[in-house]
Design a protein around this nucleic acid. Structure first.
Lengths: 112, 112
DNA sequence: TATTATAGTGTGCGCCACACGTTATGTCAA
DNA sequence: TTGACATAACGTGTGGCGCACACTATAATA
């Protein structure tokens, strides 16, 4: 396997665990899928639509997100998602662990 | 599903992408599996033996690690692994992307 | 003989990406 | 005007990969 293919795989794995925390954090302000993809992309966190949509549904089924269709403004129906209170609790926990992880990683990376 | 079960799953996902970079970094000094587990655990990065062993083999098959049995000192045979030059290159790339990811994550987490 | 150190395998499950499908809205030209 | 095409927005089915769990195996040591 070529160098860049290998790397691409690893980076994908790296993103994998962080996507959830990104989504929960972003959806403290409600947004719809298509929009979220653009915003995350802008912030340097690319995510495929085919990855995000199932993720949103999963997080909702776990009670971390709530959703509502917005068809009122006469246009394309959009499904707005937002983080629930429970989601915020989980986010806080994840954030804590994330920061610890970053700290630990830095130790290992800088070590010798 | 209960709160802590959910969290445990997410944290596992979070570790998932970082394990490779930890292993590559740690094995700049050669070590054997059982030992590595202890060292990583000490640094706050727990990893299951059943996870690490296949990982080491995979990374070796990808040319990122090299291994050698040490049976010389008359004791339990230990398989020492160490990061190859190629592995070091990949590590450098991963490190770069990791630091970017941390930066991006911080933006999202602190935002608003 | 039991425990611990050390390495390994087989299986199930979850998640991401790829490919594809679907509906609705705008838009531009014949 | 209308048909063709792009694009916004949401969705599903499938494959592959990697982690964890449970388990096996061997050597040393107490």
């Amino acid at each position: 396997m070529r160098n860049d293919e290998l790397l691409a795989g690893f980076l994908q794995e790296m993103r994998r665990g962080t996507i959830i925390i990104c989504v929960l954090a972003k959806l403290r302000q409600s947004a719809y899928g298509y929009n979220l993809i653009a915003e995350l992309s802008q912030t340097g966190i690319p995510i495929e639509a085919n990855t995000l949509y199932p993720l949103l549904r999963r997080l909702e089924s776990q009670g971390l997100l709530k959703s509502a269709w917005n068809t009122t403004d006469g246009a394309k129906p959009r499904k707005y998602y937002a983080t629930t209170d429970f989601g915020l609790e989980v986010l806080a926990e994840l954030k804590k662990h994330w920061q610890e992880a970053v700290h630990n990683m830095n130790n290992i990376l800088e070590d010798r």
